[in-house]
Design a protein around this nucleic acid. Sequence first.
DNA 1: TAGATTGTTAATCGATTAACAATC
DNA 2: TAGATTGTTAATCGATTAACAATC
Lengths: 218, 218
Amino acid sequence: MKKERISNNVIRRLPMYLRKLDDLIAHGVDRISSNELGKQMGFTPSQIRQDFSCFGEFGQQGYGYRVTELREQVARILGMKQGFTVIIVGVGNMGHALIKNFGFDAQGFKLTAAFDSSPDLIGKVIDGVPIYDSETLNAWCKENPTDIAVLTVPSVIARDMAKTLADCGVKGIWNFTNIELELDRPEVRVENIHFSDSLLYLGYIINESENEKNSPTH
Amino acid sequence: MKKERISNNVIRRLPMYLRKLDDLIAHGVDRISSNELGKQMGFTPSQIRQDFSCFGEFGQQGYGYRVTELREQVARILGMKQGFTVIIVGVGNMGHALIKNFGFDAQGFKLTAAFDSSPDLIGKVIDGVPIYDSETLNAWCKENPTDIAVLTVPSVIARDMAKTLADCGVKGIWNFTNIELELDRPEVRVENIHFSDSLLYLGYIINESENEKNSPTH
DNA sequence: TAGATTGTTAATCGATTAACAATC
DNA sequence: TAGATTGTTAATCGATTAACAATC
């Protein structure tokens, strides 16, 4: 087991492993080699062994990896066992969608509350999640330590709200607005979901394959 | 200008450049050097010059890059000028959120229709986008060539729907379901939005910084 | 035991950064 | 012209892949 800082690429692959392992469990597979896992995920066996070896020795020579055990290890490494507390800030369509469909529990997160400024929403409860007045955010967080805030407010108020959330002491912001949050708070980690980046990438690769089809020299 | 295949990393950065350039335009900046752009985006000037040089010579020695011109070039490279046609399949909370807030137009995409199987939704029009019966998808696509399908159906029917869409001749699927689509159709490009991957990554880096804080040897 | 497969070290490959001549 | 900054070649760095001894 190496003790150096883990590279971003490795960390970004961990959730992929998790999904694959859950899938294998669902199919009743209880043992897998790096070779087979690699084949199924499109990675080399080497990469898989390298990735896991950053965190410990989870396999067994001559046998491979026990799927449930490996799954538990990956979940632990990702911090899923800690039960991070989460709030949703902004209960529009996006906030709604996340409350109803994301499944925070299944990912090891505890969605404790949502916040909005609309009188139509304040006081309601959606799928067991109470919606409070955004004005009470700061006071509420004092009473209920919160690890992660999901930012699903309209873009125009995103920057202000992010600042408020930082003041509330959240450790991370999961940003769904299409603006680049520039917090002068390095201790607050920001993870962006930039939908447009993803769609534009798709557009590019579609173009690319069209062009290849039409060019004589592939 | 190099003519080799462009690496994924470069392509993934193009939409970031686009957002930054739009931002600069909004702030009335009309000229920028790779040095300054790099500082603002957290890249090295070298990387910026390398990235753009994959596609042509957009700058001017001794001067830098004209912001609007560079923005146009990036938009062109990404295929935004082509007006890809898009349909949304599944008008739940997620589909709604995208129709109402994503702004396909602003990204250069034409959202032409949405599809759902709920009688409550079929026939309605949301923000100018008509909702049709999913059953009519195939017939509709024959009449209306469609480049990209946004997959926002419930996970349980995602795989089937993806197959249907491939049969409809779409060139790309923008997948919002949390399952791994395994299409045996290499000509259909799939781009996944795996929300959970993103949140789990955030959880990891929060943990990481906590641990660093608590360890004597940083 | 023999075969399989790991964890890890070494080799390769690709991406990022630095340097600099070209030139606006 | 002198100064600034590009585009591109060369150097460095890091990530992926290959190889193999250890061992289940």
